[in-house]
């Protein structure tokens, strides 16, 4: 570009209307919304969209939701957790019906992103519904050739709170390059042989790919969870620049 040329005006990420194709109950507090966008140029796993609701008096509310589906999927899946006194999530979970229009724009975000070109190994660490953007990464990995080594450490209150459990278990059974560890913090089934309680330093040291393999970390969950896990990884001598975090609180949504 020469000095006299103005830089091209960036295109606005335009609002568009999707149609709700399906509403999938994942757990007692979580549903997935499967959307058919009017046009969709694709996304990178880890990105999110903004959705916007409009009341009949013109009032509008916006929230961000992570994309759970792989870029290879034709439909766009968002996973939504109920915030009890929230303004938007109760509407999405209780009122929204198949066939309804839903306004959204995206994809948004360029840091907390993994695509197969980045290779592996990857350590994905989820707290609660922080699994959502990591699920998009795993689904993208599933559609990629040649086992990219991956670990998912997934902290949930109980087995009943694990989102996408059947799909994760099925992947773990057939894919030797994928390791799946659940940490159940509040309630464990009888004869539970997995981890009890929160993710701790020992669990990370035992299961993460060693620093010599230069694993990439993606951590998503509530603020305190992400703070804790990321500082433990730094203590374990993993490179801070290899640790990408996405934090969210249950506030307001």
């Amino acid at each position: 570009m020469t000095a006299t040329e103005a830089p091209p005006a960036p295109n606005k990420i335009a609002w568009q209307v999707a149609q709700v194709e399906a509403v999938v109950t994942e757990t007692s507090r979580v549903k997935s919304l499967v959307l058919q966008p009017a046009h969709w140029a694709g996304h990178r796993p880890g990105q999110h969209v903004d959705i916007r609701l409009t009341a009949d008096d013109g009032y509008q509310a916006e929230r961000s939701y992570s994309i759970a589906s792989a870029p290879e999927d034709k439909l766009l899946t968002l996973t939504v957790e109920r915030v009890d006194d929230g303004e938007v999530s109760p509407y999405l979970l209780d009122e929204l019906r198949v066939g309804d229009p839903l306004e959204f724009r995206g994809p948004i975000g360029g840091h907390f992103v993994w695509t197969r070109g980045l290779g592996g190994p990857i350590c994905l660490i989820a707290g609660g519904t922080g699994i959502t953007p990591l699920m998009a990464m795993l689904r993208h990995r599933e559609r990629s050739p040649g086992g990219i080594p991956a670990l998912l450490l997934y902290s949930a209150r109980s087995l009943a709170d694990v989102v996408y459990r059947e799909e994760l278990d099925a992947t773990a059974r057939r894919d030797n390059d994928f390791r799946l560890i659940y940490a159940l913090t509040r309630q464990q089934p009888d004869h539970w042989t997995g981890h009890r309680g929160r993710i701790d330093k020992t669990l990370l040291a035992d299961h993460c790919f060693p620093p010599a393999q230069n694993p990439m970390f993606y951590i998503c969950g509530p603020t305190a969870f992400v703070e804790n896990v990321s500082s433990l990884l730094v203590d374990l001598d993993f490179n801070p620049l290899s640790i990408k975090t996405e934090r969210f609180g249950p506030s307001g949504g």
Binding site: D50, R52, Q60, A61, E62, R63, E87, H111, F112, T223, E227, S230, S231, L233, V234, P240, L241, I243, K244, T245, R247, F248, G249, S251, G252
Partner: peptide, 16 residues
């Protein structure tokens, strides 16, 4: 497009 929160959420791209 904003809503009010009473706590203090945290957003960072990596470890503290």
């Amino acid at each position: 497009g904003q809503y009010r929160t009473t706590d203090f959420p945290i957003l960072s791209a990596g470890p503290t």
